[in-house]
Amino acid sequence: MNESQSWDSSPVPSVVVEVNNLKKSFDEVEVLKDISTTISKGEVVCVIGPSGSGKSTLLRCVNMLEQPTDGKVLIEGEDVTDPDCDIDRVRSRVGMVFQQFNLFSHLTVLDNCTIAQRTVLKRSAAEARAKAEDTLARVGLEGREKAYPAQLSGGQQQRVAIARALSMDPDLMLFDEPTSALDPELVGDVLAVMRRLANEGMTMMVVTHEMAFAREVADRVLFMDGGFVVEQGPPEQVIAEPQHERTRTFLQRVLDPTHVEPEQ
């Protein structure tokens, strides 16, 4: 893993995401307190941490679904926190997959994957359709084009959501706890699709609780707690030999939920 150099502060030409001193408050509550990190092209970064640590907020600040209170986010060199930035154009290059899938329930699987291609990228109907069929095949859902989201299982819906994002030919994919709403037996299919995507060289930022996935697929793991990045590094370091007490406590809880803490 030579990515270990790419996340220190020296600018690398192929930086996809650059987060500088990002802060975010909701009313009086400061959720993100000074976050800085960069993601290079082809890198897979898994963000882990206890609930309420701000990891989803960080992800949502990257494509400006949340407005940062302070700091900068640059995507491929473009400052998306700048009011003059055409955020819609940037978003069309940044795919996002949500915990609750958020498929358009009034549209078929195919239309879910073509509507943004048609309205945003102005692709022709035939071109959009071909692209959608291609990405649906990549997530293993060929033949389900005419189905409505409600007719699919959660795992299938999430794979459609991934196909919908991939149909835009994104340079970066954001995953916000993509398997947290799934029945356990459906998690594997979604993770398999994500693993394949990572192997194909997609730049990915994944908020997840799947430690096995993070350990296997991530180039770098970012552990967040209380609005700070407490620790980051390759998974064999952060997950296997965490340096910080808080990381250790968190991992112990996640990896062994039955473990009872001595002081309680």
């Binding site: 679904l65 978003r91 795919g95 996002m96 358009f104 509507i115 943004a116 945003v120």
Partner: peptide, 27 residues
């Protein structure tokens, strides 16, 4: 209409007007 529908539409790069017309109003 769930908030996530708008978020999904916006995250795909749809401007607010198109998101409204194509996603929110039909639902």
């Amino acid at each position: 209409v769930p908030k996530g529908q708008v978020e999904a539409a916006r995250s795909l790069g749809m401007p607010p007007g198109i998101a409204n017309r194509k996603i929110v109003l039909p639902q």
